[in-house]
Amino acid sequence: MSVYMLRRLLQAVAVVFAMSLIVFVGVYAIGDPVEILISPDADQIERERAIAALGLDLPLWEQYFVFLSKALQGDLGRSFVFNEPALRLILQRMPATLELAFGATIMALVIGLPLGLYAGLRPDSPVSRTIMAGSILGFSLPTFWVGLMLIMVFAVQLGWLPSTGRGPTREFLGMQWSFLTWDGLRHLLLPAINLSLFKISLVIRLTRAGVRETILMDFVKFARAKGLSPNRVIFVHVFKNILIPVVTVVGLELGSTIAFSVVTESVFAWPGMGKLIIDSINVLDRPVIVAYLMIIVMMFIIINLVVDLTYSVLDPRVRLEAKGT
């Protein structure tokens, strides 16, 4: 097991290193922040002083090595715009995005698993057909449009839920969270629904496919031949088997939800990382963009690792192989 972890760790370091290079060069290529950041009526001397202060007068490779050596000490640069460490800026926004992504994922599981299970067990019932048709809608409707519709209906027409911002927050583990206050939870609801729609559909389809496949297996018939109750057969024998693909996909999806919740955050003015990265791209705030992308890379690596470890808990066959190598 420790050999396995060590190998994963080395892989992670290599990936982070490669990504830092790609990201740095890529961001350098998309444009010169000087034009945006420095007021047009500044004179030549002021311009040059500003450029030197931002470290933009150095050649690219030198800028990269400055970035890399600072990054190894945990400093991902200062934002040009806010004049604050980019890392702190992002970490401040992270709880908002995290609670949004986790809220959406929990919703996807709580709603998607039962519906998928039902659709898998009774594939021909009208209810199942409705569920499956609904899941196609969930897949294909664009997020921004659904977001606008949610605001239209629940915020504007019915006035049930607020449509923008996080509402009041409460501190927990040194960070500010909305879900700990009632009003904050109400603020969280609409964006979380919006973000979860696609995932609900995904979980429904995965679960249904898993159930359809698993109930045909001999071990299910054998479980019935042992005289077990239908509940035991479905919720222990079938369910534990379909959890394997569901956990894998939902876990990997969690990463992309955190990384790409940009649209939902923009529609609902949710002050998360996605909103920050869009604003930073608009003003070419390089350190923030680079720092954000590096954090996302790290996050994907960690999530992948957690998924693999969870997988090995769920599937005993994987556990053995990991030990063997």
Binding site: D218, F219, F222, K226, G227, N241, D315, P316, R317
Partner: peptide, 19 residues
């Protein structure tokens, strides 16, 4: 079932739940 009447299946690789 499984009590007074029991059944043994054909393929032992498939009759036990793998997880």
């Amino acid at each position: 079932r499984g009590n007074r009447i029991a059944m043994i299946f054909q393929d032992p690789m498939m009759t036990l739940n793998p997880v």
